[in-house]
Amino acid sequence: MIQLTQETKSGWCVVGVSGRADSEAADELEGALRAALELHAKVAANLAALEYISSAGLRAVIQAARAAQAKNAEFAVCSLSAAVQRVFDMSGMHHIMRIHGELPC
């Protein structure tokens, strides 16, 4: 189960992601990030309450980063838990995108 929220703060659209980003939830995650990118020039994914991520969830984040790049939008991935950070590290996500310790806003 994944829970997604959205709020606007100091010019950023913050998508809050909590729960589990697994194969079943990946499409929902990608959809929410893409929808935010459609409407906003600056989107931050707040992963502070994300407990679990698999390659399917990583793929959703990668696809969102691609969508951001295509439309020249800013996309920030923020506040990873230690467990999620480990999966990002093993996957070399830092070669693809900037990972932020805290929200940019």
Binding site: S54, L58, A65, R66, Q69, S91, G92, H95, I96, M97
Partner: peptide, 16 residues
Amino acid sequence: EATLEERGVGGLGVHL
């Protein structure tokens, strides 16, 4: 270590 442009989407699961 590929960049966003070069990165394929397959094989990541088995890699993990």
